[in-house]
Design a protein around this nucleic acid. Structure first.
Lengths: 218, 218
DNA sequence: TAGATTGTTAATCGATTAACAATC
DNA sequence: TAGATTGTTAATCGATTAACAATC
């Protein structure tokens, strides 16, 4: 069912479609045309139709798309029709924030463990899960089938832990550490570089300030 | 100095350049050619040269780029040669995590205030900054010159607070809420949709699983 | 001077938009 | 049947890569 060469631009837009369809669903709206959706989302109707048709024909001529059906299908495409077990490496503020986030559970991402090297934290709980010493990571992974590791530790720690994760067959890494990870093919990595994001913001602030100083033209 | 139509693809790559140049700097390396950097970063040398030349000629034929100089220049382009005052709306785990993050301060992002609606949190401190009731946001903004608001509250709260921010001349919003914000032109918005990011990960996990079941070809 | 490497133009590739025939 | 809207092909636009003359 899933084609090979879907561009990451397309994949990147799917969660947003899902969100808008969820909103429509909640409002009790049954059907939507690509044009209506395009107005709502500020994209072209053409793009919506192209994006969806990468995965199959979910609509019906003269009718549009059934909201409920399309919502479910996009969910399936995104792999949300199953559960994923995840652990968090790094029980700092960010790690605890992500561990405590209930919405992930709703989507099928199950919080299974959290590790840190700081002994003061051992035994403390995050949403019912005890913080364990990172030295126990290897044996934990051997006993439990974990899909995703969330890295919320500094750079060096992240690089140290990678081998243990990979050797134990981790499927994916959600990387909040400020490094590019080098993993074998087949291990999925999704980076969230918060400081990069913040820099894009400062770029746009100062560019806008400059524009309004010099050119005055928009 | 700053041109107008720089594509966001280019801007999005600048922080990564900065990071690699910072690493080289720390290693005491003085010069780097686009080819060396390209091997390091896993991009084409051509792209590096094209990207940089959007902003000016920072290199020298036959020599390459001076690491220190290029680092500084990219910093300037990203607007990191000044300070930004920011506040956080929402003192949950994520808000506190971001408030506690020292690296932002190092880059010139100064943590000035944090607000919440939960009375139990009022007076509690996050890195020396007292959590204030959100009802005081308006008067706070009138008294203080704040550049950036970080939204770490749920959807509805985010939408409620937008007007107050915009009316008081906020320059940018770093949005962690799971909504698209509608702000006037000139107010910069950078979205960090964590659940979208997680869905991309699950997409890739299940696509990889499917590939290895059906086709067996890579 | 010869070698290296940039800055920049030209070629290619991919993604987005437009158009329209198919069809509900 | 007529109207609406998809699925899909074709046209356009933009971004990436290749090539090379300029120059340090």
């Amino acid at each position: 069912m899933q084609d090979k060469g879907i561009s990451s631009a397309v994949v990147g837009r799917l969660p947003r479609y899902l969100r808008y369809l969820g909103d429509l669903k909640e409002k009790g709206i049954e059907r939507v045309s690509s044009q209506e959706l395009s107005r709502l989302m500020n994209v072209t109707a053409s793009q919506i139709r192209q994006d969806l048709n990468n995965f199959g024909g979910f609509g019906q001529q003269g009718y549009g798309y059934n909201v409920d059906y399309l919502y479910k299908e996009i969910g399936k495409i995104l792999g949300l029709d199953r559960e994923y077990d995840f652990i968090i490496i790094g029980a700092g503020n960010l790690g605890r924030a992500l561990g405590g986030y209930l919405n992930f559970e709703r989507r099928g991402f199950i919080f299974r463990g959290i590790f840190d090297k700081n002994p003061e934290l051992f035994g403390t709980e995050v949403r019912g899960v005890k913080i364990s010493p990172i030295s126990e990571l290897d044996s934990f992974l051997k006993k439990n089938n974990i899909d995703i590791a969330v890295l919320t530790i500094p750079k060096t720690g992240a690089l140290e832990v990678i081998d243990t994760l990979v050797d134990n067959g981790i499927k994916a890494i959600w990387n909040f550490a400020h490094v590019d990870l080098d993993v074998p093919e087949g291990v999925q990595v999704e980076n969230v570089h918060l400081s990069d994001s913040l820099m894009k913001l400062s770029y746009n602030i100062s560019r806008y300030a400059d524009d309004n100083k010099n050119g005055d033209k928009d």
